[in-house]
Design a binder for these strands. Structure first.
Length: 449
RNA sequence: GCGACUAUAGUUUAGUGGUAAAACUCGGGUUUGUGGAACCCGUAUCGAGAGUUCGAUUCUCUCUAGUCGCCCCA
């Protein structure tokens, strides 16, 4: 039990964030770019509970992740419950459940909060929000083209320049062929090799080569040749002429061509790109921040055609990606791209000179609100100077104070705080006046918390 | 799960083996129909517990929390 004498901490729970209004406005800006861009591509928004049966994560995700890196507990009915650590199994469940009535291709997105139980560190918290966008039911390279151009448009939507990032692509089919058929590896061995390839850029050259020869023995030379290839053509030239491979190569070429045709030129083939090990079955991609001070992977995705296997239903080819809020916020800060003008809490700060006029103030506030004006009422009996000062502190652009003068003349003085100018208006003209001002300042962003 | 570093007002930081200082913020005032300034006042059991000591915010230990790495990365 909690010690009643001990005061509770005001700190948030470990690894999660509080969004005070100023932070919330930034978060809403990010969500706004995500959602608007997805909608431009005709993607529909869905939501689901953060609670899922623990079994949902036992199939595709490794045991270690479920046991040690999720929030899993037993409910009062003895069911094992997990706070979702990722959205993909959930959306797979939704698609599988309604597959007979859905009209494919289905284009969906969501901005869920996800939980993982691990030690918080830079860029990795216990709760974060992520945009998940997927297209279901398109087996061809058009799906990859669309998803990657959606990811690219989101980067553009945030104002990030093409020169600051690149999109890397690879094919898991090709890599699986190399690791499985050419290097003759399977199971844990194959997994380790894939991991090692993934980590190559973070390792010293000698350390990498040593680890590789320990893992592969004689065959390390072939893999090194492949990984050291300067470009796609050279990479292909070291591989045998197999039907399976040439199909994948054709896919990669088609994808590069289609994206180039759309004017997306900061895209490169990267044979070291692996993206985890689990459910990808075809093209994988990653958006990479080229900032020399901190080059890193920002987010990525790819094709996962076996997604619905765990529900024992027919396959639905899928391409998708996930993009976290923590990382993108960090990038926007680095490139100084966060919006400068945060939205104001209200348009008008309204107050009565003294108690006598409070009823009238409330009536006026109500009619203005119904006309679309955001009104804050100050109920204090303080001095006029204090009221004006408080309006200014609250960053509300207009003030009106109701007293005897206003009541008898029928003219209400509405003060523009940034100009210090007053305009006397009849009661029924105020809404029009403020809305006009509002629309003139629309670039201030309409996202509020 | 492992390791390193850190913990002083709301925030950012100074400082000392004899119970603390500044800036900004916040609240109040100087000003009873018009703000942004200035000035004044107020706000800290120095993260928690124990030990050493005449005396600990300062030294030691434990715990807790935070930051950064490793592991892992959906």
């Amino acid at each position: 039990m909690t010690d009643p004498k001990k005061k509770l901490s005001t700190e948030a729970y470990k690894g999660v964030r509080d969004f005070y209004p100023a932070d919330c406005a930034i978060e809403q800006y990010i969500f706004g770019v995500w959602k608007e861009t997805c909608k431009k591509f005709g993607y529909e928004e869905y939501m689901a509970s953060i609670l899922e049966p623990a079994d949902l994560y036992r199939g595709k995700t490794s045991e270690e992740i479920v046991n040690e890196q999720t929030y899993t507990f037993t409910d009062r009915g003895d069911r094992e419950v997990t706070l979702r650590p990722e959205m993909t199994p959930t959306v797979a469940r939704l698609i599988a459940g309604k597959r007979k009535t859905l009209f494919f291709p289905v284009r969906w997105f969501s901005t869920p909060n996800l939980f993982r139980y691990e030690r918080p560190q830079r860029g990795r918290l216990r709760e974060h929000y992520q945009l998940n966008a997927d297209i279901f039911g398109l087996p061809g390279i058009e799906a990859e083209t669309e998803i990657i151009s959606l990811a690219y448009e989101i980067m553009r939507g945030f104002g990030i320049k093409d020169s600051n990032f690149e999109i890397r692509i690879n094919s898991r089919k090709v890599m699986n062929y190399i690791i499985g058929t050419l290097l003759g590896q399977s199971g844990e061995q194959a997994r380790k090799t894939a991991q090692l390839i993934d980590r190559r850029s973070k390792m010293e050259k000698e350390v990498f080569e040593k680890a590789l020869s320990e893992l592969l023995g004689e065959k390390d030379a072939l893999l090194l040749t492949l990984l050291n290839s300067k470009n796609f053509e050279e990479f292909v030239s070291h591989l045998p002429e197999e039907k399976e491979l040439s199909e994948s190569f054709a896919e990669i070429k088609a994808l590069l061509g289609a994206l180039n045709a759309l004017g997306i030129t900061n895209i490169v083939f990267d044979q070291t790109l692996m993206r985890g090990f689990d459910y990808y079955t075809g093209i994988v991609f990653e958006v990479f921040d080229k900032n020399p001070a901190n080059p890193r992977s920002l987010f990525g995705g790819g094709r996962y055609d076996d997604l619905l296997d765990m529900f024992a239903v027919e396959k639905v080819p899928t391409v998708g990606f996930g993009m976290g809020d923590v990382t993108i916020r960090d990038v926007l800060e680095t490139y100084d791209l966060l919006p400068k003008n945060l939205p104001t809490a209200a348009d008008l700060y309204l107050s009565a000179m003294d108690k006598e006029w409070t009823g009238y103030v409330n009536d006026l506030a109500q009619s203005l609100r119904r006309a679309g004006v955001r009104v804050v009422v100050d109920y204090s009996e303080g001095k006029v100077g204090t009221k004006v000062k408080n309006a200014d502190r609250a960053k509300i652009p207009f003030v009106a104070i109701i007293g005897e003068q206003e009541k008898t003349s029928g003219q209400i003085k509405v003060k523009n705080l940034s100009l210090g100018k007053e305009t006397a208006l009849a009661e029924d003209k105020i809404a029009e006046f403020l809305i006009k001002y509002q629309s003139a300042n629309e670039d201030q962003s309409t996202n509020t918390c």
